[in-house]
Design a protein around this nucleic acid. Sequence first.
DNA 1: ACAATAGTGTCTGTGAGACAGTATCGA
DNA 2: TCGATACTGTCTCACAGACACTATTGT
Lengths: 221, 221
Amino acid sequence: MKNITEKQFLEQYSSEQYKKPSVAVDLVLFTIDGDELKCALIKRSEHPFKNMLSLPGVFVGINESLDDAVRRGIKTKAGLKDIYFEQLYTWGEVDRDPRMRIISVSYLALVPIEKLETTAALYPYEEIQKAELAFDHKKIVEYARERIKNKANYSDIAFKFLPEEFTLPQLQKIYEILLDKPLYKANFRKKIEPYIEDTGKMTSGNAHRPSKLYKRNEAII
Amino acid sequence: MKNITEKQFLEQYSSEQYKKPSVAVDLVLFTIDGDELKCALIKRSEHPFKNMLSLPGVFVGINESLDDAVRRGIKTKAGLKDIYFEQLYTWGEVDRDPRMRIISVSYLALVPIEKLETTAALYPYEEIQKAELAFDHKKIVEYARERIKNKANYSDIAFKFLPEEFTLPQLQKIYEILLDKPLYKANFRKKIEPYIEDTGKMTSGNAHRPSKLYKRNEAII
DNA sequence: ACAATAGTGTCTGTGAGACAGTATCGA
DNA sequence: TCGATACTGTCTCACAGACACTATTGT
């Protein structure tokens, strides 16, 4: 950039001789199924890493924001819309994809299992940890796992795995899975109390004592 | 992507008709100067946003990792090497740069003021907040400010603003600036005690009671 | 009545917060 | 001796952790 204006530089930079990396968004879509945290993965049908599992992802269009690309990915790969997502980390090692230079902006997406009537193939996190994934995708999934473990302590992400109305035993179960440790009922209830609101409704038909249905108290962060 | 193989798609995608975004890294380089948190900014000499302040940044080379681009940026823009940095967030709105589509991977960099004998122009954060910055850079600086405020509570980033050896009044000052609130001496010392190590040395010549010199206890996270 | 799950009362220890005190330097 | 800064002892209160208890359903 010596002796040329920024404008000249940009013209040169935009020209053919300056190769640009491609940019993709990769999705780590988690849900909780019974006692397990599960992640949506796609079996690759082409080389490289043929027949291996990989994260669903899309390339970012030239007139598409990152968040829009994520929404498109969630829609086309999992058939979902209006679910919670947040940016995780951007992975930019030169050789992370053997075909070409691809910078991957990874996103965490969370969805209640009830919304996932669709075809997305889910794999338990515990199995993923033991398996090999395509590209650097295993590292990305593990990064996402750490993130939800941390955020469970100080944010409301646990609620993203549940429908609008839920019981406290359900919510506690989510927390136990995310934090990977058992919690004391009484303590959990005292701690969570400010963040929830009684709906007045109860569960029924569960062969045992019914439980109250709560919803998130949106007024409290 | 209907009816074509992934290979064919990639060939098409790589061809000229598929325009790619550019990727840059933008640096939020903070230091603490006296009682103030300051950020390195550059006055733009070209349109758009001519004469306005902006974050130092570089385009990511096709054969350069993101971290390498950051190191190059820190070297060329601030004349520094081997300083602490971490990725912040990736900004991908379509119109964030009026000239062309640029996706910006922002990085936080922290440096002790003693290392900054150089020319980098520093601006107090409080002033930046009141000013206007080029592009979406003000939002990025504010995001970085929030990050260090949060991380001061549970990580060791405060130490990144100090040289190897430091006094507890110095360290407390850093924390007070980062957290933007006064701290009680006694409580601060009790809390920080496990993370520091006495060097046996003392300050001197300061016209008052000298203070002990400590260093980071690397064994403790 | 019983099994099973839902929900509550209370003790304890830890640690943050607040404040008052003592210690050691230069001038 | 005094001003200024460095450093310490201790009380209180909130809250996480642990555990034992009571409550309500279907069978």
